[in-house]
């Protein structure tokens, strides 16, 4: 697996989409920070701060940092880039070569999985760094209390988990579809449809008046991700936002490994 990781590291240099994606992250965080500032100014003195806070919208530097990852941009970009890398590897024969030269298929899977996870970490970190910089630049200030800092780190950790789980699903989709174009479509589709399904579940629960049905939405990743930008985080939410992504990572990895082991290349 060491050889495979070395090879992937070498190949990553040539993936323009990785670098383009980072540039996109830079500009998106800037736009998001400016939008947050406008919202903040609009709310200032009108007593609307609390309303913005309750709506989970960015209204402060800290919220800008957290809100950007909670926004769809990073996950959306990762859906595209992971599909290009993993789906593309099947298309151009890289996976086939990796499987032939003495590597067990599970190792080939883990190479792609690790690659996707590393990319995810890089993208989220880039998002936090850019958001932090812009937040300072547009004048939100830099001071955190120890308590605030702890909360920020905790929310970041939960966001990491949710986005890593999304990436794991994108790896699974790419390994099932085995084509970059189809994988991009399906990964983005999954991301959008998942949110729609949650909305439908919540709506159905409200109409039917069944709170139990509403809890089903907790099993979805977009619920977890949006929970991390909510104004308050209950212990129950923290637990849900911890274990649901882990479950998604385990299940999607298991499906990836089982199908990859079974199917011909």
């Amino acid at each position: 697996m060491k050889n495979l990781l070395k090879a992937e590291l070498y190949r990553a240099k040539f993936f323009k989409s990785i670098w383009i994606g980072l540039i996109v992250v830079f500009f998106l965080t800037l736009i998001n920070a400016l939008v947050a500032r406008s919202l903040s100014e609009a709310a200032s003195g009108s007593g609307s701060e609390l309303m913005f806070e309750l709506m989970g919208l960015a209204y402060s530097g800290k919220s800008v940092i957290i809100g950007n990852v909670g926004a769809t941009d990073t996950t959306f970009l990762l859906a595209i880039i992971i599909s290009l890398i993993v789906g593309g590897s099947f298309q151009n024969g890289a996976t086939r070569n990796a499987a032939i030269c003495g590597n067990r298929r599970i190792n080939v899977f883990f190479t792609y999985f690790i690659e996707a996870m590393v990319l995810t970490v890089i993208y989220i970190l880039a998002n936090y760094i850019f958001s932090g910089l812009f937040s300072i630049m547009i004048g939100y200030g830099t001071e955190f209390t120890a308590n605030e800092f702890g909360t920020l780190i905790g929310r970041m950790a939960l966001q990491f988990l949710s986005v890593l789980a999304y990436s794991s699903v994108f790896v699974m989709i790419s390994m099932l579809i085995r084509k970059s174009g189809g994988s991009i479509g399906l990964s983005i589709g999954f991301y959008i449809v998942e949110s729609l399904v949650i909305s439908a579940v919540v709506l159905a629960a409200s109409v039917a008046g069944k709170t139990g049905l509403k809890e089903v939405s907790n099993a979805f990743l977009s619920t977890c991700l949006s929970s991390t930008v909510a104004s308050t985080l209950s212990t129950e939410t923290i637990l849900i936002c911890t274990f649901v992504p882990i479950a998604w990572i385990l299940i999607s990895s298991l499906i990836s490994v089982l199908t990859f082991e079974k199917r011909d290349l």
Binding site: N3, F14, G93, N97
Partner: peptide, 24 residues
């Protein structure tokens, strides 16, 4: 097998280097 499997965006050398790294 079937058709040569290489990355279209890489040069001959880069493709072979990538595959040699995979093979160790």
């Amino acid at each position: 097998i079937e058709y040569p499997s290489f990355s279209a965006k890489l040069t001959a050398f880069e493709n072979l280097k990538y595959m040699a790294l995979q093979k160790g």
